[in-house]
Every structure is written in C-alpha cells, then in structure tokens.
C-alpha cells in the first residue's frame, strides 16, 4: 500500500523532475460512468516541465479538466496541457483541476489501485493511486 502513495520514477524514462504526491481516485458511485483523480504535482527539476498527456489502462477516456465556477454556474473544460516552471507546483483537487476518468474497463472499489501515466513529450511517468470513497483530510 505504501507504494500507492507516491510516484515510482522509473529512472531515465520518467518526466524529469516531476514529483507526484497524495494521488487518489474517487470511488465511482454505481451507475456513474466515470470519476476523477486528484493529486499534487511539483516540478523539482531545473527546467520547465509540461505534461502533455494523461492515460490510464483502466479507463477509455482520460483527460485533464478544470471545474470552473462563476455566478453560481459550474462547468468543466478540458486542458490540453499543464506547464510548471522549475520549483512550481500545481494541485489537482475537488472543485478545481482534476483528471477526468471516463468509461472504466471494469468496476473499481475503495482501496484498489488505478494506474496513471503522465507524458511530458516523449517521456512518461507511471504510478498507481488508491481508490478512495472520501477525500483525504487536508494536510
């Protein structure tokens, strides 16, 4: 389970400097065709880092989305990519940025792992996140 908590950089092929913390996936309610993943990303490298793709073998569609709210209205919009300057971090949290995971290939229950691949150009960082029924308490 400890391995689920953080990123497992697979050496040279991983996105340089990318750190992923506290990643989790909301357990999809029955009859829901999808869910979302949340995490903190940090660029610990010396160069700017741009995440260009998101993929999970357990879902047919994986996209970075932002929930935008104004004047009582809420809407979801896709984000093509995510850039971080050296030392910069971005938080994906409920009500804001999230990785939308739609069309699951199977059922998902609390505690089970979900694999996610983040690409930054030709490189890829892969890791696993636990499914949680409720959001973890704020740190």
């Amino acid at each position: 389970m400890l391995l689920l908590a953080g990123v497992l950089p697979s050496a040279a092929l991983a996105c340089p400097g990318l750190e992923v913390k506290g990643a989790w996936v909301r357990e999809p309610p029955p009859a829901s065709p999808g869910t979302a993943a949340f995490m903190s990303l940090h660029n610990a490298g010396a160069s700017a880092l741009t995440i260009t793709g998101w993929r999970s073998p357990q879902f047919g569609t994986t996209m970075l989305h932002a929930t935008l709210s104004s004047g009582g209205q809420t809407k979801m919009r896709g984000h093509a990519q995510l850039s971080m300057a050296p030392g910069e971090g971005i938080v994906l949290a409920p009500g804001g940025l999230h990785v939308m995971l739609m069309k699951p290939t199977g059922t998902l229950h609390e505690g089970e792992p979900v694999s996610l691949e983040l690409s930054c150009g030709p490189q890829t960082t892969s890791f696993e996140m636990p499914v949680r029924r409720e959001a973890p308490a704020a740190p």
Binding site: R26, P28, P29, A31, S32, P33, G34, T35, A36, H65, T67, T74, M76, P94, G95, H98, M100, L101, M102, E134, A135
Partner: peptide, 13 residues
C-alpha cells in the same frame, strides 16, 4: 448529472 466526475459526487458526499 451522473456523468459529472467532480462537482456532483463531491457535493453529494
């Protein structure tokens, strides 16, 4: 709506 991956499940929780 149920295809809503963020706001709806979060609000119901």
């Amino acid at each position: 709506f149920t295809h809503c991956p963020d706001v709806c499940p979060n609000t119901l929780a």
